[in-house]
Amino acid sequence: MVGTPTYGATRDRVEEYFDRTATRTWERLTSDAPVSGIRQTVREGRDRMREIMLSRLPADLAGRRVLDAGCGTGAMTEELARRGAHVTAIDISPQLVEIARNRMPEHLLGQITFTSGDMLSADLGDFDHVMAMDSMIYYTADDLGQALAGLSRRVSQSIVFTVAPRTPFLMAFFTVGKLFPRSDRSPTMIPHAPRQIAAKAALHGGTGSVSEVERVSRGFYISTCLEYRA
């Protein structure tokens, strides 16, 4: 479990944002309800990213344990359970977890353990795979490296996750965001380069490698899928 001050502070801010400020927004965004043009691009981008991430796992996950780290309203969890996986679905926001539970088809509930809290907690146990879609995008490279190194000791196959790519546009957006008072900002995604994350993971004892899978750029949604394997 990551215990750095930066990780703890960011985790707490993410919890406050999603559990107290943005719950209804995310509930609508991840439903079939009409949304604005900007949010529609985010919805489409996230749908495409979910497909890419799922393509890294076997079609048949029967008997495998998968951690959906940052499950949100449960779209990834549902697809994993449909493939036969035993899923631990965790999110920092209890309200989002409750939405995910309520949306889940009843016949899949027996394969899923829903919980809220720290997605990196060792108390969650060991897994074959970890899926972390847009739940690590707010953390520093050092925190990500420590997270991957720690998770890799409990994961037998792969960790598939997303980060904001280190593009000129996103770097400018990140820099401008620092100019605003922290109280006026939602959690800000931090752009990363895969080699930087790999180097930090190695620094913290990780023995795996980081590879870039695919980038999705759809309007206001820009994210890169990465895979960490021992």
Rank of each mutant, 00 (worst) to 15 (best):
S183M: 04
R166E: 14
I112M: 08
T175R: 12
T140K: 06
I99M: 10
A122R: 13
G177I: 11
F161H: 12
R65P: 06
V160T: 09
F114R: 14
H204T: 03
D126W: 08
M133A: 15
L203C: 07
T73M: 06
S116K: 03
F127L: 12
S93Y: 00
S211R: 15
T73H: 08
T115G: 01
C71D: 05
S156V: 03
M76D: 09
R153F: 01
A122C: 02
M131A: 14
T113V: 09
N102H: 08
D123Y: 03
P105I: 05
R103Y: 07
G208P: 14
D68V: 02
V66F: 08
A69V: 04
A132D: 01
G206H: 10
H107Q: 11
K200S: 14
D68I: 06
P94C: 06
L203E: 15
L148C: 01
D126N: 10
V176H: 05
V210M: 13
G177D: 11
V176Y: 04
V210K: 13
G150C: 00
A147M: 09
M133T: 10
R153C: 02
T77G: 00
L151W: 13
P168S: 06
E79S: 10
A100Y: 01
A149Y: 11
T140F: 00
L179Y: 05
F161L: 14
F174D: 15
L108H: 11
Y138D: 02
Y139F: 15
A202Y: 04
T162G: 15
D143M: 07
P94Q: 10
S93T: 01
G110H: 12
L170M: 13
L67R: 09
G177E: 03
S209Y: 03
K200G: 10
I137A: 15
S156M: 08
A201T: 12
T175E: 14
D134Y: 03
P105R: 01
I92G: 05
L179P: 10
V87H: 13
H204D: 06
A89W: 07
L108F: 01
R182P: 04
D118T: 01
P165K: 04
A89P: 14
D134F: 02
E106Y: 05
N102G: 02
L170V: 05
L151S: 06
A172N: 07
H107L: 00
A172I: 02
R153K: 15
G110K: 08
S158M: 08
P94R: 11
M189Q: 09
T77R: 00
G74K: 01
R154N: 07
H107D: 15
A100D: 10
H129M: 03
L203K: 14
I137E: 10
D143G: 05
P194I: 00
S158V: 02
L67T: 02
V130D: 04
A89F: 12
T113W: 08
G84R: 07
T77H: 00
D128L: 12
A69T: 04
